[in-house]
């Protein structure tokens, strides 16, 4: 059935072009007009940029819902209501981080260090308060400054979302967890909210250029656990918290 597949791909291609054009043109041409004044004049420049980014991506997903009616989104209220917490998620698709940004106005995350090298975009990431995963940015006193910034951000009601697997899962299985996120949560004395993401890999599969618009799909974000470890306890161990978190994700998966 190569002919059928070919005709199925036409709407996929059109939707992909429209969505990525909106995404890129927004960042390159429309948003800088708002980003620059917001950053200069707002009392908290990073928060202003985060809110603009949030608004842009909210529109991106509104457009996605309109263009891909066969995909529905189910995001539970307890996920939307999360604040002052570190959100730990599984990672399936490039859509995961932008979906989370579209849900939370005050957000921070750890971004692959190569994105910081992209002209304009890298600058925007830095000024928005995102943290580079690069070892150079997490060394020495800069590390403490970054952590103190995150602590303040969480105390003000923001969230930090992190994918402890570090990369997208190609087969839906959980990759080994990086324990760094749990150390950050401990430093900030913040609760951990475990959010299970499902379905984003069917809409935008890893390794593919096109959105999959022809299959019926449900994208679901679910709060599967809340942990408030006793960080100050004598027997506290990062490894146990990481293991407990992983176990909850494995039971869900």
């Amino acid at each position: 059935m190569p002919l059928v597949r070919f005709f199925q791909r036409i709407p996929d291609l059109l939707v992909t072009l429209i969505l990525w054009c909106y995404f890129l043109f927004g960042y390159l041409f429309i948003l800088p007009l708002l980003f620059i004044p917001a950053y200069i004049f707002a009392e908290n420049g990073a928060a202003a940029l985060q809110n603009l980014n949030h608004f842009h991506l909210k529109c991106f997903f509104a457009l996605t819902r309109f263009l891909v009616p066969r995909t529905t989104f189910k995001i539970s209220k307890d996920v939307r209501d999360i604040h002052s917490s570190v959100i730990v998620c599984n990672h399936l698709s490039y859509l995961d981080p932008i979906l989370l940004i579209s849900l939370f106005g005050r957000h921070r995350t750890i971004v692959k260090h190569t994105f910081f090298k992209v002209p304009i975009f890298g600058r925007l990431l830095k000024n928005s308060g995102y943290i580079s995963s690069g070892a150079r940015d997490m060394l020495g006193p800069a590390m403490i400054n970054n952590l103190e910034d995150i602590k303040k951000h969480l105390a003000e009601g923001g969230i930090l979302f992190v994918f402890p697997e570090g990369t997208r899962s190609r087969d839906g299985r959980l990759a080994p967890f990086n324990k760094g996120v749990f150390t950050i949560a401990r430093y900030c004395n913040a609760p951990l909210k475990l959010v299970f993401i499902n379905g984003t890999n069917r809409l935008f599969p890893p390794g593919h250029f096109l959105f999959n618009t022809h299959e019926f799909n449900e994208i679901k974000l679910e709060l599967i656990g809340s942990l408030e470890p006793d960080y100050k306890g004598n027997n506290f161990s990062i490894s146990s918290v990481a293991d407990e978190t992983r176990k909850i994700f494995e039971e869900k998966g």
């Binding site: 070892a135 997490m138 060394l139 020495g140 590390m143 403490i144 952590l147 103190e148 324990k179 760094g180 150390t183 950050i184 401990r186 430093y187 960080y231 100050k232 306890g233 004598n234 506290f236 990062i238």
Partner: peptide, 23 residues
Amino acid sequence: FDSIDAIELLLAIENFLSTEISQ
């Protein structure tokens, strides 16, 4: 050892000393 391990160690030291370590 990396920086995250160093932070982990610092937090363990705080617990051990039962005191807050300044920035």
